[in-house]
Amino acid sequence: MGTALGLDLQTQAIGGDLPLEEISEAVLRCTKCAHPEKCARLLAVSDLQASAPPDYCRNRDLLDNLQEQVG
């Protein structure tokens, strides 16, 4: 989802904007998603450039904060 939002999580982690443990936590939140099929369909669109994570995204707050840091 980060890539679809134009985020480079690796660069943000290296730059200190995203703690490495937060990436692990984000992955765990994804694995507990109640809508993985919706997310998979959304992310399957190869030219997707989303402006915000979907409302159901368990990492919405994290991704919104990272977008604010970049923007």
Rank of each mutant, 00 (worst) to 15 (best):
67 Q>L: 15
8 D>I: 00
63 L>Y: 06
15 G>M: 00
41 R>A: 11
69 Q>W: 00
14 I>T: 08
21 E>M: 01
58 R>G: 08
28 L>G: 15
69 Q>S: 13
36 P>N: 07
9 L>P: 00
47 D>C: 01
5 L>D: 07
29 R>C: 06
71 G>I: 04
70 V>F: 01
21 E>L: 05
70 V>N: 11
13 A>H: 02
18 L>I: 06
24 S>L: 10
37 E>T: 10
66 L>W: 06
68 E>C: 08
56 Y>N: 06
3 T>E: 14
23 I>N: 06
59 N>Y: 03
44 A>Q: 14
40 A>H: 12
24 S>F: 05
40 A>L: 08
28 L>I: 03
67 Q>G: 07
47 D>I: 02
20 L>V: 11
36 P>F: 05
12 Q>K: 06
31 T>K: 11
53 P>D: 10
42 L>F: 11
28 L>N: 12
4 A>D: 07
36 P>Q: 08
35 H>A: 14
52 A>F: 05
55 D>F: 06
28 L>A: 15
45 V>Q: 15
1 M>L: 07
21 E>H: 03
14 I>S: 04
37 E>C: 03
37 E>D: 09
46 S>L: 05
71 G>P: 00
4 A>W: 00
37 E>N: 05
37 E>I: 08
3 T>L: 07
8 D>Y: 03
51 S>D: 13
18 L>S: 03
2 G>R: 04
18 L>R: 01
31 T>E: 13
7 L>Y: 02
22 E>I: 01
54 P>D: 11
21 E>D: 12
17 D>R: 03
40 A>W: 07
10 Q>F: 10
60 R>K: 15
43 L>Q: 14
23 I>G: 02
16 G>I: 06
28 L>F: 02
54 P>R: 07
13 A>E: 11
61 D>F: 08
45 V>T: 10
49 Q>F: 04
65 N>S: 15
